[in-house]
Design a protein around this nucleic acid. Structure first.
Lengths: 245, 245
DNA sequence: CGCCATCTTGACACGTATCAACAGGCGTGG
DNA sequence: CCACGCCTGTTGATACGTGTCAAGATGGCG
């Protein structure tokens, strides 16, 4: 693989230069030339919370990278029961590769900014660039790990443990500070929940009422503080972690 | 990609010629030359049911392809709660790619035959052969789809629906006849369960007692017949499917 | 034949779902 | 500016499904 040429910023397309996740997402596998080529076809789009980006069963026309925000992936049974099967954060890749149609539904959970690329364009690029395919394999493996980890939570944990797991998940994924340094100690963790209670319930395989009760229980036990409904403060992440079972 | 040369069987390593899953598994991406090279390092091994092939937390030294049988992937919490997070059939690939250690436990559910290859050997081959990496990406995507499908079952289905889903899964994966033709009609489906009731319970996030009760319920409703404990007959797969929720 | 693991069945307990009422926040419109 | 309705979230009473504990039944195997 040749030199990435990132030092010469002039070689990087203007639209990509302002992208904060360019190196961490799949575009990190692209050379300046490839970036230039692909950037002719990409569109950066902002969506507000609650927008359905892809629908279950619909044909796939494009893929995307999350630049900012949280996207929830869910499946719905005919009778209306819903299960959230994944949460994706920047700089995750969105879309079922190499498939004609979606087998799940993707909805913005918060305000979101994505960078869309047409299906064929990306697939052609993958065929030519094995580093890109490798990066996509790595992300897919990571998602599989996460899905299996969550299966344990869904199948074997109590309602309280599920809610604690969820808060722990959000706390460690949402605050950028907790990515780099493993020293996630000392100071309070504060964040806004990107999901409604209903979404959380669908993620945990519970009802809203049960989720609400577990929030209350965690609050009365001083493990979390709830300022407004969505705003959460966690005094000690390790104590919360112990609740995860 | 050059001609595969499969017509000249003499070019295929002896050990691979008798392998029934060679074309369907990852080896289908290998040329005769590559097969010859890799076959110097592979070992075909038979294991009986109940053997732990890889342990959670242990270093990975090799990958494998399932030639025959069923392998269950599971995770265990400190307090002993267990969740089966996947079932793998021939010709699935076994092992967490590109990771130093396992994050789950793999155990033979039935008698199993696998073809092992040292970690480094396969990883070098992947680096040189993008078709191989593509095939592994496809399998990983398939596993991710299955994991997410199962999350719906774990999170949102009743005990009866879970057991019906499980039986449907086994029925459609175990009988080779139901792979090729989508016309899975007319005749009875018969098979031996590759898992104990305890394994099934761990797969479904239930207890053995509940699993047993749902089996009884399905039997009294004539949806399944249980000859011996493990031997199952399904008169009409579509009726069973309707029980899956 | 008898032991042992596996599976089934029953009685009861407990956790979560369900149904219902209510509180708080927020935008709309008078 | 306040009244109103709506949406989200909380809390309570009760119902129901699944877990737990215990006892038996079944089948494999020495």
């Amino acid at each position: 693989m040749e030199e990435r040429l990132d030092i010469h910023n002039s070689n990087i397309p203007k639209i990509c230069r302002s992208c904060e996740v360019r190196h961490r997402g799949i575009c990190g596998a692209l050379s300046a030339t490839e970036l230039l080529e692909i950037s002719k076809h990409t569109r950066q789009i902002k969506h507000e919370a609650g927008v359905e980006l892809v629908s279950d069963g619909e044909p796939i026309t494009s893929y995307a990278t999350i630049m900012q925000g949280v996207i929830k992936l869910s499946k719905i049974l005919e009778d209306g029961r819903q299960q959230v099967v994944g949460l994706q954060f920047a700089p995750d890749f969105i879309g079922r590769l190499f498939s004609q149609k979606n087998n799940l539904c993707a909805e913005t959970a918060s305000d979101v900014q994505v960078c869309r690329v047409p299906k064929k364009i990306l697939e052609n690029l993958i065929a030519d660039n094995s580093e890109l395919e490798h990066k996509l394999l790595e992300q897919t493996l990571k998602e599989l790990d996460e899905a299996r980890e969550w299966m344990v939570t869904l199948g074997r944990k109590t309602a309280l443990e599920k809610v604690a797991c969820f808060l722990y998940l959000i706390a460690t994924h949402f605050d950028p500070a907790y990515f780099d340094e493993e020293k996630k100690q000392e100071k309070d963790v504060v964040f806004d929940l990107p999901l409604t209670r209903a979404d959380i319930a669908d993620f945990l395989g519970l009802t809203v009422e049960t989720v609400s009760r577990q929030f209350t229980k965690l609050r009365t036990e001083k493990i979390i503080e709830i300022t407004t409904r969505r705003h959460i403060l966690i005094p000690d992440l390790n104590i919360l972690k112990k609740c995860c079972g």
